[in-house]
């Protein structure tokens, strides 16, 4: 069996992508207009594709008959290592957009580093996903600007979304014990640098959207990376895992 930290880190990357993809897929058929319904469903597909690649790799590292399906469908809440941000309910369109913007921007700078990882498979997945994440950042930032600097109604909704989500952004930049440090691997990730670039991008887009950036010293929620989740993740898993739990080994 491979290094436990590497397995956990790969699962963390996979869980982030799967849960965000699942949340976005909830919009399928409910988007505000057809083109944006298609856009958010496309993004869900990209996220679930990333999740599959990471789960396949985690299954290979884990051995013992683990598969991408067993990792996605048969682990319980406390074993999931995704950030709290991605499991939060969709809220309104503004809140979904803002969560996507926060997380895609984080993924963009993170994957930029990961594509140089000393682990070849993680590097390959990141290199591939980065191209798609670029589109996600562009799309979500355009919506943040449109809505923030839009009508009184859309602006109020964006201000509300910032209030709801901001305290969940800090967790992305606090390394979990299994995250590779640059000192450890030489080519690992430097979360401090990801945070700086993220803050710069968020500030620039918020400025254009005429939205205030909340103070840096806001108290931040944590725990997701360690398996301590909000009550929302349980409901997601109940729905997502229902079939495999009720009819073990069911196949399409």
């Amino acid at each position: 069996m491979a290094d436990t930290n590497l397995i956990n880190y790969t699962l963390h990357l996979a869980d982030n992508a799967l849960i965000l993809g699942h949340r976005n897929s909830e919009w399928c058929g409910h988007g505000p207009i057809l083109e944006q319904d298609i856009a958010v469903s496309n993004i869900a597909l990209d996220c679930i594709g990333q999740a599959r690649n990471f789960y396949q790799y985690a299954a290979q590292l884990t051995g013992n008959g683990a598969t991408e399906d067993s990792l996605a469908y048969l682990r319980d809440v406390t074993e999931f290592k995704n950030c709290l941000l991605v499991e939060l309910p969709n809220g309104d369109w503004g809140q979904t957009i803002l969560r996507q913007f926060f997380f895609s921007t984080y993924q963009y700078f993170l994957y930029q580093q990961l594509q140089n990882s000393s682990d070849q498979q993680i590097a390959a997945i990141a290199e591939k996903a980065l191209k798609e994440v670029t589109y996600h950042v562009r799309w979500s930032s355009e919506w943040v600007i449109r809505l923030g600097d839009g009508t009184e109604e859309s602006r109020q909704r964006m201000l509300h979304a910032v209030d709801e989500l901001w305290s969940f952004t800090g967790e992305m930049f606090i390394p979990a014990h299994y995250e590779p440090s640059p000192a450890e691997t030489g080519t690992g990730i430097d979360l401090a640098s990801v945070k700086n670039k993220w803050t710069e991008k968020i500030t620039a887009v918020f400025e254009e959207a005429t939205l205030p950036v909340p103070p840096a010293d806001t108290w931040m929620q944590t725990g997701g990376k360690q398996g301590r989740h909000t009550e929302h993740l349980g409901f997601i898993l109940a729905e997502m895992q229902f079939l495999q739990r009720s009819y073990p080994n069911a196949e399409w």
Binding site: E35, I38, A39, N42
Partner: peptide
């Protein structure tokens, strides 16, 4: 450009 996302992942409208 109508939308960066189209009927399949590889197309824009």
């Amino acid at each position: 450009l109508v939308s960066q996302f189209g009927s399949t992942a590889c197309k824009a409208l």
